[in-house]
């Protein structure tokens, strides 16, 4: 492990931290354009974070230490996840210690802390949000794992960079099983990041909200960390999508300044396209009733399983 690899590693996390709010800003901009609204600034998420970091924090009287730890753990988990996903280079020293299954575990850990923290104060909303979040999670998590499984079977490895490298070097990367997986992945992405058919990030209506219900008790710096973590999560998911389904442009060989020159614009282009695509999906689809969500996620899970099935049937 050379120094340059560690530098890439740190760079990647730093880039993710910096780019995640912008990506959300871009997504919101696209949505606004598609819906004939005036678009908010690309930097609005940044301003929000800054505002939150400068406010007085209010914590419920009966909150336990777990409540105060959780935002840091969630944020740390997401930042670490950004270091595992090969968004720019595939020579990442951290990846040796954490493969794709560990990545899913990391997301699960973040979710668990988030839901526990939501239950900590003991308000009706907190527990409601926690329950709904777990309802989304218990189907979305295995679906994600199965998506990764298909890619892992193709590459005989569960290490994401190996998968990316392998898929990028394939003739066309057109594996029949991956088609199903891609559909499943998009559904999981929407559900896990509280996007529109599952949750509406812009609502505080108790009948529908999931993510917002959980974070209702947080304020100021804690809320800022959680929001930032949520943005990072979206960014990470999109990057996982790139790593599995659009692996082109990632610096493959020992990454040098030259590799980065290719990788960063490629990543930016892919992110722009993904943001626009997500905005489109969110615009054309309507928010589901909460009891429809399991059906939606079960479809995602079954699509992922089908991907595995089709892969074994056709790919082997």
């Amino acid at each position: 492990m050379s120094a340059i690899e560690w530098i890439t590693q740190v760079l990647e996390v730093a880039l993710a931290l910096a780019a995640a709010p912008v990506f959300l800003g871009w997504l919101n901009q696209c949505r606004a354009w598609l819906q004939n609204r005036r678009a908010p600034s690309l930097w609005l998420p940044y301003r929000n974070l800054r505002k939150l970091f400068h406010k007085e924090a209010v914590i419920a009287e009966n909150a336990s230490p777990l409540f105060r730890i959780a935002p840091y753990v969630v944020f740390g988990a997401m930042a670490l996840a950004a270091g595992i996903i090969p968004s720019m280079g595939t020579q990442l020293p951290l990846v040796v210690s954490a493969d794709a299954i560990a990545l899913v575990g990391l997301f699960a850990a973040a979710r668990m802390f988030m839901t526990l923290a939501a239950m900590d104060v003991g308000t009706a909303f907190g527990t409601l949000g926690a329950r709904r979040e777990m309802m989304v999670g218990f189907l979305a998590e295995p679906a994600l794992l199965m998506v990764i499984f298909v890619a892992s079977m193709l590459s005989s490895s569960t290490a994401l960079p190996v998968i990316t490298r392998n898929l990028a070097s394939g003739h066309l990367g057109l594996s029949p099983g991956l088609a199903f997986s891609a559909v499943a992945f998009v559904l999981v992405l929407l559900a896990e990041n509280a996007r529109i058919p599952v949750d509406n990030p812009a609502t505080h209506l108790e009948l529908t909200m999931i993510h917002e219900a959980m974070v209702l008790e947080y304020s100021a710096r804690h809320l800022a960390l959680i929001e930032w973590a949520a943005q990072l999560k979206l960014f990470n998911y999109v990057c996982i999508g790139f790593a599995l389904f659009l692996p082109w442009g990632v610096a493959r060989a020992q990454i040098g300044p030259l590799g980065l020159l290719v990788a960063i614009p490629a990543l930016a282009a892919k992110l722009a396209a993904a943001g626009a695509g997500l905005a489109l999906i969110e615009t054309v689809s309507a928010k589901m009733r909460v009891m429809r969500i399991p059906e939606f996620l079960a479809s995602a899970f079954l699509f992922a399983v089908l991907g595995l099935l089709v892969h074994v049937l056709l790919g082997a």
Binding site: F53, H54, K55, E56, A57, V58, I59, A60, E61, N62, Y72, V121, G122, T123, L216, E217, A220, R221, L225
Partner: peptide
């Protein structure tokens, strides 16, 4: 966060 955060932390009843 500790180093940059200048505000205080206040305890209050849970939001109802």
């Amino acid at each position: 966060v500790r180093l940059t955060y200048r505000q205080r932390v206040r305890r209050a009843p849970a939001w109802d």
